[in-house]
Design a protein around this nucleic acid. Structure first.
Lengths: 236, 236
DNA sequence: CGCGAACTTGACTGTAGTCAACCTGCGTGG
DNA sequence: CCACGCAGGTTGACTACAGTCAAGTTCGCG
């Protein structure tokens, strides 16, 4: 919820939500494709991938969710058919019932809007994902993903040098629409600029990486108002 | 707004919104990439494409918006950076100010939820788009797009046989991440199943088309509740 | 009638996929 | 404590789907 500006009281209301901690094993499917859910999940530790699938079973990762992300917030208004969710490594999540989220959204319109905006930021990331997968070559695609995850992984500056990205080359291929073999070759070619080892990304040259990755971070901004807009809902 | 269930009063409130009709020439950019907007636009006639772009200027269409769609509803909560909008043919739209939409959303929570859900359905379509572009071959991609647009174009059964899809092969390539040349060849190969001529799609064998297109329409359903959920916002 | 946009076709190229073998490092059980 | 198994990573040889370039053709419109 760092994507919107909220008041003290609103933040308290969110922190007071009833939650249930769940630990997912690595590779565990938390939500199957087409499965209905009545909880939303907040990632605490680890990483979750959202995926779609073709009929022959090939998976395509459509989003990564890092700690702090609500991975299936959109299920509040559309509980069915939001794709599958899979833990990319051992992952800790907090399950929050839709009913509680609806209650707090009803009481605080600004929170409802923050939820909505959060979903829309995910949608903006998804649009960029289509461009990435559809229009860029292997090197650029992978470099772009590394850039995006760098920004999203850290509020601190040091994520520009190194951050945790606990995935295998095969999974990176599922995200970039490449085979594991080609990811391997591409990473080798990028060796001087960025490396992925043991679930850690090390960026050796950020400027070069953004250039190779055709990366412009503006699509990642959340609340675009310098100050909070008042009243957030024009009438009330 | 056929994607959610609303009461008579709520429908009236939406119909009473202040609007301004605008006619777009074919190929006209209505919204540039990165441009901020304070209106949302409802497509009345024609077709609008949302697109992203790489730094070398290659476009990638990420969504088609047919009459009845709100093409940039998401701009209400995130007015910046929602990609560009381009009229694919001569198109009539209705511009609605954000302020009016916010007002009606604040007064009728069910409408706010319907807006949000509408955005989430677009997001679900976008996820499928990633899978399509990332994981399927040319024939399957194009067939899939034809299937999706068939369902979205018509509430009536006859859209399963023919519907308006006023785009060029080049534009279809921008959507499917293919070159115009390859679209042309692929359409030739699909000739017995589906044809695109003069902005009309004619489907000669729907079953075969869905099979080639690896198409399952469940991701297109909007309001998944058989009846309207009451109360829609749990508290109120 | 003539222009231009869209479509069509052919020949050649290139990026990424496929298949297959092999290496490396880690955790488990004998 | 070592041996084994296995997941993940690495490399090479070959293939194929789609891109590129270039030269037509068709058709609608002024």
């Amino acid at each position: 919820m760092t994507r919107s500006v909220l008041t003290e009281e609103e933040e308290q209301a969110i922190l007071a939500l009833p939650t249930q901690e769940v630990v997912l094993r690595s590779r565990q499917d938390y939500l199957h494709i087409g499965q209905k859910t009545s909880y939303a999940c907040l990632v605490i530790e680890g990483m979750i991938g959202r995926f779609g699938q073709t009929s022959d079973g090939t998976r395509q990762i459509t989003a990564f969710h890092v700690p702090g992300d609500m991975a299936d917030l959109l299920s509040i208004v559309r509980p069915l058919g939001i794709g599958g969710l899979n833990a990319l490594c051992e992952t800790v999540i907090l399950r929050v019932p839709h009913s509680a989220l609806r209650a707090v959204a009803a009481r605080y319109p600004a929170i409802a809007e923050a939820f909505w905006r959060d979903c829309m930021l995910d949608a903006a990331i998804l649009m960029e994902w289509v461009v990435n997968v559809g229009r860029r070559n292997a090197q650029t695609r992978i470099a772009h993903i590394f850039c995006e995850m760098s920004i999203r992984s850290g509020r601190d500056r040091e994520a520009l040098q190194a951050y945790a990205f606990p995935i295998t080359q095969e999974q990176l291929g599922d995200a970039a629409s490449l085979t594991g073999v080609h990811v391997n070759r591409t990473l080798k070619a990028l060796r001087d600029v960025v490396t992925l080892t043991n679930g850690m990304v090390h960026i050796h040259d950020w400027v070069k990486l953004t250039r190779i990755g055709d990366f412009d971070s503006t699509y990642l901004v959340g609340d675009t108002f310098a100050e909070r807009q008042k009243p957030l809902w024009a009438a009330a």
